[in-house]
Design a protein around this nucleic acid. Structure first.
Lengths: 221, 221
DNA sequence: GCCTTTATAGCACGACGGTGCCATGATAAT
DNA sequence: ATTATCATGGCACCGTCGTGCTATAAAGGC
């Protein structure tokens, strides 16, 4: 029916992608405030300033909304931290202390040190734990975890290549250990923000990296 | 404690405490299978082989049921691990390698290395994350976390006293770091049991303890 | 003008949640 | 036997949630 050009003949105004992202924002706000069980269509629609029918116009199912929320969360986290990683890699010049400082900053992106990162950690944690009993979420959660794993791995490998870490260090095991540390800290801090202050989190991370570089002076086991 | 003859004048047969624990068992089974949102009164009652009214006879609210489940979970975890800790402390004799091995076994109680510990980790994780948005659970979850914290702290202090760890080691920070590591590993393993095998978990814990004792040969920073 | 497509909103239905209330059976004291 | 107490089970009510369906308004293409 329509002529050959299928691209520019949309008789509408709003951008669906942008709308979906806006709804995802509402999901994040509700989940951060009331938990995942509070992310009902009515709550999300109310948070987004829309009606339930409007939200359902962009998401067929409640499941699809949750899946999109996880995907979008993974996209944003990956995007933000990859940008940070590129900043680190681009500035390959600099003293060893500078590289160490920037590496620590990069890894600190995974800790709830401010409101933005705190919400992000809480959301990652919430969706991840929920994915255990929700097959539809598990696949995308796994992808997000894989992204974070590779990022930490690349970071350690980069530090190793630049001489900041010993060449004989088991980066795979250290990646798992470091990621577990970051996740565990985030978990505790998400539960008890008053006990786990930003300074304490930074101190633990700093200490852990100290131990990693100190292993170089010890040589292979 | 075995159900001894009641001394009071109760015209009944069953022991309410035992019944409440049995219902808690049903809660654990349902939560482990379907997540916390699946722990409805109907599901729990069905799992326990009772009717909803029967469950409600022992728990006024759904909230009270959840609170009791958290408390009981904390009790059991603490009981089991404290028993293990006493075994460690009672056998203060033995070579350094033996002490190290038993310490590692004690800390391994927090890792999902078998079905029992796996369920326990999953339950701890589920209730903890849920407590973030449920004030009624937060208080008891905090108590459970405090118990685990103190246990890890005592373990490290014991190792330090016996000479297994350097005297100048910051046990408080190391406790936080070790607990974050255990929590993070448990979180990952709960999500992806196939990727995080028992051997891998043991290896990471072993490696971490190696790093701790290796810090003794490095002296103060 | 007309018509198609999209955006937004609302209603109604069925399913399921917690909970108040009550009926029945069992037990032990009187 | 009577009665009080407790255990157990079921019913019914009300709220909420997801979802199918429909209505209305706006924006191009013809």
């Amino acid at each position: 029916m329509a002529p050959s050009c299928y691209k520019g003949v949309m008789p509408k105004i709003v951008d669906p992608q942008q709308r979906r992202r806006a709804v995802a924002d509402a999901v994040y706000a509700v989940v951060a405030r009331c938990g995942l069980e509070g992310a009902t269509l009515r709550n999300v629609a109310s948070e987004a300033g829309l009606a339930v029918g409007s939200v359902r116009h962009y998401f067929t199912d409640h499941d699809e909304l949750m899946i999109f929320a996880v995907q979008e969360l993974g996209r944003r986290v990956g995007e933000r931290v990859w940008a940070h990683a590129e900043r680190l890699l681009s500035g390959s010049t600099g003293s060893r202390e500078d590289r160490r400082r920037r590496t620590e900053e990069l890894l600190a992106e995974f800790l709830p040190l401010d409101d933005v990162r705190r919400d992000e950690v809480v959301l990652r944690l919430t969706f991840s734990t929920a994915a255990r009993t929700r097959p539809s979420l598990l696949k995308h959660t796994e992808a997000m975890q894989q992204t974070l794993h590779e990022l930490v791995l690349r970071t350690l490998q980069g530090a190793q290549a630049s001489g900041g870490l010993p060449a004989d260090l088991g980066v795979e095991v250290e990646t798992i250990r470091l990621r577990a540390l970051l996740d565990g800290l985030g978990l505790q801090a998400a539960l008890f923000p008053r006990r786990f202050t930003s300074d304490l989190l930074r101190e633990v991370l700093h200490h852990h990296l100290d131990e990693l570089v100190a292993a170089s002076e010890r040589g292979p086991e």
